[in-house]
Design a protein around this nucleic acid. Sequence first.
DNA 1: GTTCAGCTTGAACGAGCGTTCGAGAACCAC
DNA 2: GTGGTTCTCGAACGCTCGTTCAAGCTGAAC
Lengths: 207, 207
Amino acid sequence: MASSPRDQKLDTLLSAAARVFAQHGYHQTSMRDLARASGVSLAGVYYYVQSKEELLYLIQSRNFAAVLEGMHAALEGVEQPVERLARFIDNHLDYFAAHMAEMKVLSHEATALGGEFRQRVSAMKHEYTRALMDILADLERTNGPAHVNRRVAAYSLFGMMNWIYNWYDPLGDVGVELLSQNICRLFLGGYVGLPVADAVIPRSAAG
Amino acid sequence: MASSPRDQKLDTLLSAAARVFAQHGYHQTSMRDLARASGVSLAGVYYYVQSKEELLYLIQSRNFAAVLEGMHAALEGVEQPVERLARFIDNHLDYFAAHMAEMKVLSHEATALGGEFRQRVSAMKHEYTRALMDILADLERTNGPAHVNRRVAAYSLFGMMNWIYNWYDPLGDVGVELLSQNICRLFLGGYVGLPVADAVIPRSAAG
DNA sequence: GTTCAGCTTGAACGAGCGTTCGAGAACCAC
DNA sequence: GTGGTTCTCGAACGCTCGTTCAAGCTGAAC
């Protein structure tokens, strides 16, 4: 993972940008705000990035790629649908809680991108949604018919998980483990009527 | 409900504004876009409204007030906590589906307001959240201990319900009744382990 | 000491923004 | 018609925006 000084600086820039975008919103943030927050001159930002929109795209695509990668790793070799779902949720919330600013930008500024940029992020979203839908289909096969429309269930779960940027504080009294466990129970209990015991809910190995 | 011509025109303006804000976002929409969409001249808009921010505030506060009023009406005289919750969800989703643009603006542009405007909307949100939390407390009293942290549950429910502006089409193959029923089941099943029969879920009388 | 690529910058550009203002059109009462 | 209120508008103001560019740093290579 030896990265050039340039790549490192770009990372710093992206991280600062995510912080400011998350706090004030993409459109309310000017490139001057961003330069100030990252300690570079206004023109200097353009040495690392072609446009403001590319900045947003890089934040969204890199973090979504990480979520996708984490998901594939978490599901590898896991067969039981209930556990697959638990790991799916776990991965999502772990990453979200560890990268609140970036994930808020990903969740909240979805429509701010246009053209090619938007399509590429949409493709990732599609893959991710499909993965969840597949897990739900497996779940129904092993745990009996769902009590709820599958599509409604999937988007409701995304709603629960992505809404957290509006209220959740990873450093508050609700830890990520509890959050993940709770959302998993909430969903499974309603979806297939499963009263989920604590033991059923695993933690992802990587933490 | 006899309103002056001025009030009627303001309503038209707000409705057009909500439509455009929902489509392109509050900050991306210029007052010129808005004037074009509502068929008034740029300067004409300012006869009805003091600023762009007041426009956003009026959309948010009026619609939230309507949601709150609908909730109070829906809960009036209803004692059983399960039914109270069902009616709470029902009212929220009915209104949301019937006013997608306005509710998207309310959900998505929460941080775009500042100062006094923001505080007033926040006060409504607080009242609304408190109302849900009270219902959940009642629910635990009558249906046994919750399987999930109450605060997590409340915000998860809001997440499910408010996220719909990202995917739901009221004119699609999932009707509002089914949506409301599904979300209610999903939540109750996970929260208190209640396998909700169809009969338990009422429709609000007003529709 | 010279060279050269990597990096940084102040200053400027054109465009679009939210808002204001004074002039006038439209309407109603008398 | 006259007077007065309600409504509408074109044109402009001052400002900030995203982006560009030529010029200048820096530090390692020879």
